[in-house]
Computed example of a mutant assay.
Amino acid sequence: MHLVNKFILILLAGITMSCQSGKIEKDPNLISVSILPQKYFIERIAGDDFKVNVLIPPGASPATYEPTPMQMKDVAKSIAYLRIGYIPFETVWLDNLLEGTDGIKLIDLSKDIELIKGQEKHGDHFHEGGIDPHIWSSLKSVKILSKNLYQELIKMAPEKKDIYEKNYQQFLSEIEELDQVAEASLSNKKGMSFMIFHPALTYLARDYNLNQISVEMDGKEPSPTHMKHLVEEAQRLSIKHVFVQKQFNVENAKAIVAEINGDVVVIDPLAEDWLTEMKRIITILKD
């Protein structure tokens, strides 16, 4: 993150807010979140009762995205900010987004999830304390996240408790059904290795005893030496797919699959239709 760019954005946001007449008026139905799957989770439980301000738009990376002044203003109008946990965007920007805001509640949806710490030196190099942030790639973790979310939503709209309870239980049953399918279909794949450019499936790999091999090294593109090692590993382990998140460059993955006679598989764990994408990823892994 370039400090000058960050300062300019914060300055522009301050000018935008100060140009408004008086104090920024709260929108009692507006919630701000970091990533699109959070919007999906909220809508599965609360329907359209809340407007959801998603900071990181489709196709953008949580490692590099910079909020616009208008987005910063919308955060100030929100009654709550639901952080996903430890993504680089939140590590870098959250203090600035919340500075000077009045009456906004900060909620960490990663509460009670067993976080993966310090197991790999890779990926989003702004991790707090070496925490892997990709909790939404795990059905088991999203069960806990959804419970945290449900409890917060009924605090915001206690009169809707019965409706939210019913919606939450329905959503939970769908997650549990897919989790059972994954347990059954991946039970004979324990220890299986898969290769991915950016290590976005760490929690899913833990859930089903799979081995994730990251192409990235410390959040950077691999060196020629590491690329050679990756090709040798893929050949040794009979890996034919290299997963690439939609938000990342596919060129290094293409170079690997050209050597192993495989293919690049584009995935999008940050898709708004989270459950459908999780079903697709699990189907690919079991085939």
Rank of each mutant, 00 (worst) to 15 (best):
L3E: 15
V4K: 10
N5G: 09
F7S: 11
M17E: 14
M17F: 07
S18C: 04
K26L: 12
D27L: 01
P28K: 13
N29D: 11
S32C: 13
Q38T: 08
K39A: 13
Y40F: 15
L55A: 02
A60C: 12
P62T: 04
A63T: 07
P67K: 03
P67E: 00
T68H: 01
K77E: 12
G85A: 06
G85Y: 01
Y86V: 03
E90V: 08
E99T: 14
K105R: 12
Q119G: 11
Q119Y: 13
F126W: 00
I131A: 02
S137L: 02
A157R: 14
D162W: 06
Y164V: 08
K166F: 11
K166E: 11
Q169Y: 13
S173I: 09
I175G: 07
I175Q: 08
I175L: 14
A184C: 08
N188A: 08
G191F: 05
F194A: 08
P199F: 11
Y203N: 02
Y208N: 04
N211T: 15
M217Y: 13
K220T: 09
L230Q: 03
V231T: 11
V231W: 02
E232W: 02
R236P: 01
K240V: 06
A253M: 04
I256N: 01
V257I: 13
E259K: 15
V264A: 14
E272F: 13
W274E: 02
L285W: 04
L285F: 09
K286C: 08
